[in-house]
Design a protein around this nucleic acid. Structure first.
Lengths: 357, 357
DNA sequence: CTGTTAGCGCGTTCAT
DNA sequence: ATGAACGCGCTAACAG
């Protein structure tokens, strides 16, 4: 199976080629190029020059086969039954910074990130991953879970001899994970509102099926309790992440006999809907009612008033997850870790002290 | 260099292992597993069973070395001097669908996508890419350019024996490209406004340094000329993509002795700013002034009134670019192509016929 | 039909 | 300081 000469560049030079040209052995050339102290400086210099001259680069595949690892970490975006769900624009703002953080971290390790979207059903997902791992195509795995998605069966993955880090979710105690602390983000939001003087604080949560939504709601309830504040009837409503649900649920809250003066929404889209509703109701924000969102998505910066919100450090999440895979991969017996990253409150214009009227 | 037995799973089974167990040769096992008609069905079945039993998967690296290609396409996001620029949230909405389209297309070819962010300077970028190519780590390259970024020197890349497709930009006639037809998108916008009855149509363009912005402006001017419409003084202003610039430039336009009744903005953010300005000026949209954006970004769906805009088929762009690399890679002498994809007008609530008052 | 042999290109002992 | 030899795991060509 001799390779044919291609149009553009002929066959790429190999170690043997430049060894032959220099009258050296391939072994020496290899050592020289890898900066081994065993080879004489004079020889090394000749080798480097010849390599440069021929534009020689060691064949990555061959090297990987030889050294026994692939220099690749796989990044899987897990789609559920509804393949579209994970790929709504609203989820991009979520996974893009994670991807960026992971990619840049891996680059620092001179590793490559393989990006894969798994939109099939549960079984297929797991098979594909196992396939890649068993095939030796990857040295480590980053799994990005979305809300409401069925977990890839952890059991299968735990058996495999490759480091795995789940992102945005703790899937199993046996698998390292990195996620944002939704609970503490919610607590920060409520504490801020309390500092401003609010006592009647409501919450529009995300769907019950979402663990992120549940964690934020838990944070809300805890913070309210800690602050000695009541969660009146009708102060806790369940939305579906969409702007529209924020709109209608907020209107519902304003019909209450004793409406809240501040509403913490579980994401920015619903907060946006809440703002629209208040505008339609001629209720001033933040003078009469304060609104706080979650995500710090782009709309929070362009909507009027600018939305106070809770920023998720997603890029950091990606970075940390990547560093965790690398640590797991390392020789030292690095322990499995479950990292929880604290989000940060971003104060903009949608919150103020309640009017004392 | 004998591999040590690791904690979890011992050494992964190899072709030789299962061949030995079956009393066959590695070659036969390989053929059987690859569904060669040369091997007897009875033998093939035994082989498959043994393979399944031991959870055997061919080693991907070894196979790649043997067959001579890497089964990997590299996807580079090119950052310019200002590394941050390409990674503003506003650019995510841009490159994420492209990435998704490319990734899913490559998966269909059973290829893998390697995602790489190149944020260094011009020289480094090119070196890194060349390095990967010469190292045989990749079978093809997808280059994603952002506005205003210096081009990776095409000369270097053209010499290399690997298919390259540039996205969002035609960098060289020698390199296949795929991009959105900004010009025709702008034309569609103007024609739509004209159909509605507008004659006084202004344009808030993106920065002069951006080729996308220039193309859209060209489309605007061409369409106006074709429609026999005047571009009055002050009807063509240059923004900087940001919401704020849309805000101020629109106010400026409304101060004109003969203000426009419709404004085509070069992106959704500036259109958003324009909407805010009109609200502050108590000018009704779309009754008194129509606004049209570009991108169909998420805000266009949540802002009030919902923004009419020009949608870029970015996922398709990614898909087509990926298919182009694969075609280029194929045996047949596929010609270099420069694909231009037409965007699509999305009609929402921010445009109407001008009031006849 | 199946086995033997020979690479793919590199890294790595072990001699010299 | 350098070279010879071998292994990584698989596929391809040829022989029987």
């Amino acid at each position: 199976m001799h390779r044919e000469i291609t149009k553009k560049s002929r066959r790429r030079p190999t170690l043997a080629d430049i060894a032959a040209e220099l009258g050296l052995s391939a072994a020496t050339v290899s050592l020289a190029l890898n900066g081994s102290p065993l080879v004489a400086e004079k020889t090394a210099r000749r080798v480097r020059e010849a390599a440069k001259k021929h534009n020689y680069r060691p064949n990555a595949i061959a090297r990987r086969l030889s050294v026994g690892h692939s220099e690749v970490i796989s990044f899987y975006v897990l789609g559920g039954k509804d393949a579209a769900l994970g790929f709504l624009p609203s989820s991009w703002m979520f996974y893009n910074p994670i991807l960026k953080g992971a990619s840049m971290a891996l680059t620092r390790y001179r590793y490559h990130l393989q990006f894969e979207i798994l939109s099939a059903e549960l079984g297929d997902q797991c098979d594909t991953i196992i396939e890649h791992i068993l095939g030796g195509a990857t040295d480590g795995v980053l799994l990005l879970y979305f809300d409401d998605y069925l977990p890839v069966v952890a059991d299968e993955l735990e058996k495999v001899d490759v480091p795995i880090v789940t992102m945005n979710r703790k899937v199993s105690p046996e698998l390292s994970s990195a996620q944002v602390d939704n609970r503490s983000g919610a607590i920060a939001a409520i504490e801020y509102l309390k500092e401003l003087g609010h006592t009647k604080i409501a919450h529009i949560s995300g769907p019950e099926a979402s663990f992120n939504a549940r964690d934020r709601r838990t944070g809300y309830l805890e913070a309210m309790a800690a602050a000695g504040l009541d969660v009146s009837d009708g102060y806790l409503l369940e939305g579906d992440w969409q702007t529209q649900s924020g709109y209608y649920l907020l209107r519902e809250m304003m019909m209450l006999p004793d409406p809240p003066t501040a509403v913490f929404c579980s994401n920015d889209y619903m907060a946006m809907g809440a703002l629209e509703a208040l505008r339609d109701l001629n209720i001033a924000v933040p003078e009469q009612v304060s609104i706080i969102g979650f995500d710090d998505s782009e709309i929070s910066r362009v909507v009027l008033p600018r939305l106070t919100t809770v920023r998720q450090p997603l890029e950091e999440l990606g970075r940390r997850a990547a560093e965790e895979v690398m640590a797991l991969k390392g020789d030292g017996e690095h322990e499995i870790r479950h990292q929880v990253i604290a989000p940060e409150l971003v104060r903009r214009g949608s919150c103020a002290s309640p009017s004392l009227v």
